[in-house]
Amino acid sequence: MAEEITLSVFRGDRSGGREQEYKIPAMTGMVVLDALHYIQAHQAPDLAVRWNCKAAHCGSCSAEINGSAKLLCKTRVDDYENEVIHVRPMHTFPVIKDLVTDVSWNYEKLRQIPAFQPAINAPFTLQQRDVDRLQEFRRCIECFLCQNICHVLRDHDAKDAYWGPRMMIRISELQMHPLDTADRLDLLKGAAGIGYCNITKCCTVVCPQGINITENGIIPMKESVADKYFDPLGGLVRKMHK
């Protein structure tokens, strides 16, 4: 691999900015976050980048690398041999500084989702197969790359109408919990705006945890909404069945 690598990193804040080039020595197995740390330590100490664990567990270092939404700590520099590595902040959220964006909107929405309401008290008796679906969604590291790539939020800026894939799988995991008693379907159809999703699946493509957001989360929730609002016959059958 090349001995020197070139990074072009977005520098700027809410008022604007531009990419700036840095040249740094390459190291075996280096990830883009390592490269940014090198720049911080030797060339630009005030380069702002959010990170915590550097092991793809925390979901802090989300950014856009050469046009792909990725975690900086999981993207190897040698994936871009003989290329300039362009690093930019997530597009969907307002820039605070350099690569750091304001993701507080996501926490506001997380707060608005009705919490788990178990029918009984722990310890629960649940089989692994009953919780497999929930555990898939609970792998989420809240990197918000799905929120970033979702065109409803990214291009249409419809944050007031649709809460995004992260919230959809959060609601899914609660709705699919065998012991949960709360009903979030009104929320899903209403304020959370599941109808805005047109299942174009970019959230699933970018998920660093490999969660099948669309197939296993959003589509089943769309079907649950259809159960309640678009299928009076099915609803009647289910009522009688109970």
Partner: peptide, 14 residues
Amino acid sequence: EQWGAVFDRTPEGK
């Protein structure tokens, strides 16, 4: 578990 944590299960469901 009461607050929503989902641990791996034993064959008995614990």
